[in-house]
Amino acid sequence: MRTFGDRVRHALLFEAVALAIFIPGSAAVFGHPVEQMGFIGIASATLATLWNFVFNVGFDRAMRRLRGSVHKTLAIRVTHTLLFEAGLVVMLIPLIAWYLGIGLWQALLMDLAIVVFYLVYGFLFNLAYDRIFPIAAAAPAALNTGRPL
């Protein structure tokens, strides 16, 4: 299971890279000023960072309890990403509608477009993160007993 420090690093890296892509990209795509999309991006990233930490800790605990391991197969990684994004959408739609002065329906459509970006980004980021920062494998029993392999 990942450590507290590793989860903090994961969440911060995830959001920093995402903001560098999201703010200028969303301003261009949605036609809102960079400042407005910057606020949406930073507010969303703050909420997403907190959600990311809480969700990932809970997901890993559930996996360990239900499967005895935190190893994520491709299917589990897809499920993980979809569940994370669904929770975030529910939290972000009212914020987007309020700040941009648009209706909930417009905010939902905007958020769905953002979700598509984050689904692809989140999947690729997490695959890369798992490869760059792998979970340490348990030491073989012979190493724990002091006996030669």
Rank of each mutant, 00 (worst) to 15 (best):
V90L: 15
P33D: 13
G58C: 10
L104G: 13
F14E: 03
G58K: 14
A86V: 15
I76E: 14
A27F: 02
E85L: 06
V115A: 14
F59G: 07
L127Y: 12
F22K: 00
V120A: 13
F84T: 00
L109R: 14
A128Q: 05
A62Y: 14
G68P: 07
I114C: 12
L47F: 09
I40Y: 11
L127N: 04
A62N: 09
W51A: 01
R77V: 10
A75I: 11
A48C: 13
V17T: 12
G31N: 04
V54T: 07
D130F: 09
L82T: 09
I40E: 08
G25Q: 12
H80Y: 13
W98G: 00
I132N: 02
G87Q: 03
A97E: 03
G31S: 07
V120K: 08
S26I: 06
V120N: 02
A48V: 06
R67Y: 10
I132R: 06
D111V: 06
D111Y: 05
A20H: 01
M63A: 10
L50Y: 08
P24K: 00
L82G: 06
A18N: 07
A128T: 13
S26W: 14
A86Q: 11
L66Q: 14
M37G: 06
A16C: 10
Y129L: 03
L50R: 07
M37D: 06
L95T: 11
S44F: 12
G25K: 11
L88C: 08
A45I: 08
M63F: 11
E85W: 05
T46W: 09
F59R: 08
A27G: 10
A113S: 13
L112Y: 09
L88F: 14
L109P: 02
R131D: 08
L119T: 08
Q106S: 12
L74T: 14
V116R: 12
V120R: 04
L119A: 12
A128G: 11
M63T: 03
R67G: 05
Y121K: 01
R67K: 14
